[in-house]
């Protein structure tokens, strides 16, 4: 497997916040979702990946290269789309396109214009008059036009209406369909991005809580519903975030395979019911835990 981004013990400290011990790999050809509650360090991590800030310690390579050695090359290959894309607000879409084109030798103006047209973005409109969704689509169009290899997005669907959200997610998926490209997307909401993420990473209080393939993660994590007292003590004790409801109890397991044999008779008897935890469930269990 080839990796778009590799991080080892990456850390960033600033007043009142510490992101630390981040060791993870972002595979090429995939969308990697970085999830976590507000203040977990997601934006800091994606800014480190896009080199919008320098790490305090640790190593980070993008396509095998360090920013320290190949800054210009990597800045050409990496596109960062902030939550509020930072174009000059008083300039028009067309002007901004020409401004960006000046920095990229292989700028594909036809592709850029087509994508703007598809997104119904008028070239004569000023950036400040675009909606947040349109600004994100504009930034994505620019990434396609200059042939970026790694797309790094910070909360791209936050506050978007359902139509723009679908367009943005479709574009991100389209981006990684090209060979060797990758996308890293941070979000505090898992529902929309969870569907397009092939790999997921969860941050909690500035630490990496887990990082793995989404399907493998979802097959491990299950939400177990059970009647009070129906589960053996050790099984109940192994569950995370056990809650009592009017109709019984529920808790999360992060290793369903280990419990399957013991739960199957109980499932058959109707005392226990198991469902997929979903990324939201995993996030809640990780953050709130026991």
């Amino acid at each position: 497997m080839t990796y778009a981004v590799q991080m080892k013990d990456l850390a960033k400290h600033y007043r009142g916040f510490r992101l630390g011990g981040i060791t993870m790999d972002v595979p090429a050809g995939c969308v990697t979702g970085i999830f976590g509650p507000n203040g977990a360090g997601k934006s800091t991590l994606v800014k480190l990946i896009a080199r919008h800030m320098a790490p305090t310690s640790g190593s980070l390579t993008v396509f095998g290269q360090r920013y320290e050695d190949s800054e210009r090359e990597l800045r050409r290959r990496v596109t960062f789309v902030a939550e509020e894309p930072p174009f000059y607000p008083d300039k028009t879409v067309g002007w901004t396109g020409r401004f960006l084109a000046d920095f990229y030798e292989d700028w594909d103006q036809r592709r850029f214009s087509d994508l703007l047209h598809e997104s119904r973005i008028d070239a004569d409109r000023e950036i400040k008059h675009l909606s947040r969704g349109q600004k994100t689509l504009f930034a994505l169009a620019a990434a396609f036009a200059h042939g970026a290899d790694l797309l790094v997005l910070d909360e791209p669907v936050n506050g978007l209406d359902v139509l723009h959200r679908r367009d943005v997610l479709r574009r991100i998926r389209e981006f990684v369909s090209d060979d060797g490209k990758a996308a890293v997307v941070s979000s505090h909401v898992t529902d929309a991005l969870g569907d397009i993420a092939d790999h997921v990473a969860f941050l909690r209080e500035g630490r990496l809580a887990l990082c793995e393939e989404r399907d493998a993660l979802l097959s491990r994590w299950k939400l177990v519903h059970f009647r009070k007292g129906a589960l053996p003590q050790d099984v109940a004790g192994a569950l995370l975030r056990v809650e009592e409801h009017a109709l019984g109890c529920s808790g999360y397991t992060d290793d369903f395979a280990a419990l399957r044999d013991r739960l199957e008779p109980l499932i058959a008897s109707g005392a226990v019911r198991v469902e997929n935890a979903g990324l939201d469930g995993v996030l809640v269990a990780l953050v709130r835990g026991n």
Binding site: A50, R51, H52, E71, R72, R75, F80, P86, F87, D90
Partner: peptide
């Protein structure tokens, strides 16, 4: 005042440039 530091950092320019 009208500069966008985040935009500059997105461009293929080194800090020195």
């Amino acid at each position: 005042k009208g500069e966008s530091e985040a935009l500059l950092r997105s461009l293929p320019l080194t800090d020195r440039e």
